[in-house]
Design a protein around this nucleic acid. Structure first.
Lengths: 151, 151
DNA sequence: GCTATTTATATCGTTCGCGATACAAAAGTA
DNA sequence: TACTTTTGTATCGCGAACGATATAAATAGC
């Protein structure tokens, strides 16, 4: 059994597990408002900048438009966002928050704190988190570059 | 706009993105052999210990059995594993590697190295990786504990 | 031994995530 | 202007993930 194949040596498996479990920690908080985690991410993007085309949302979340399109369509059905043809570019669909979508920001105020509580551990301190963010950002940037290359 | 809602301050989004992109780096290597990343994880588990019940595989991967069951069924259809009723406990389904499943270990020898190359960046060094592993393991342990609590 | 509860899998329905493909609008080119 | 290429969304199909539920086997309690 080669050392590189040991599950305990896999960075990807750790990221995969940490990501899934942390998302699960969000779930009860979000589903109480009829939201999923990816939908919450779209809200974060729109709260920062309302009225964005699907493509910009997808790029910001590092997702494909064929993931974001149906996701946003479901959010439209729930009355959280509206979808309107772009005026400059008729191919674009501009996604905008409804009042309900805006108000969710207030309703979800305590979500970041609650999740922070669920994840609190001795390895995550104000001193260590910046380095962790840096490492993950660095990895993400590297992967984006390399994945784009062989297209 | 509250600081806690900024996408750039989200640990979960970073993990989610890093996990997805790193999985994408595995994809061309695995799909060349008809595998998906979760299927590769099952192989890693079975290469370490062959002939395990579905439940043990699920626990090792922190997945639900209703995720692993169909996953393993697809692998059985591909002739990578067999599924047999347990002898001690008739409820269990023991998943075992076929010859083809064993041989995949040889065929995939270079996968860890290729992925290592795709992810190589200045933040990931022999000095920093252990700390990163420790942090992620700590987070995962904490999340498991907290998610289990409210069941 | 007999019922109640737990445990191991499986099935179903919904949402992601993404490769492949389609199509119309925009941009580039002859 | 006409033709080609690129770009922005959308549709389709499949494989995860997972909550909810079902079912049979094992275990516990009486």
């Amino acid at each position: 059994m080669k050392e590189e194949f040991r599950l305990d040596n896999q960075l990807c498996f750790r990221l995969y597990t940490a990501s899934r479990l942390l998302t699960q920690a969000y779930n009860p908080l979000l589903s109480a408002h009829g939201l999923t985690y990816p939908q919450y991410l779209v809200l974060l993007v729109l709260w920062e900048n309302d009225a964005q085309p699907v493509n910009d949302i997808a790029k910001r979340l590092c997702l494909e438009t064929n993931t974001v399109t149906p996701l946003v369509q479901r959010m439209e059905k729930q009355g959280i966002v509206t979808r309107a043809k772009g005026t400059n570019d008729a191919r674009q669909i501009i996604v905008s928050l409804t009042d309900k979508g805006q108000q969710l920001q207030t309703a979800l105020t305590d979500v970041p704190f609650a999740v922070g509580g669920a994840i609190a551990c001795k390895s995550l301190t104000p001193e260590t988190v910046p380095a962790l963010f840096q490492t993950l950002d660095d990895m993400i940037a590297q992967l984006k570059k390399n994945l784009k290359r062989d297209t």
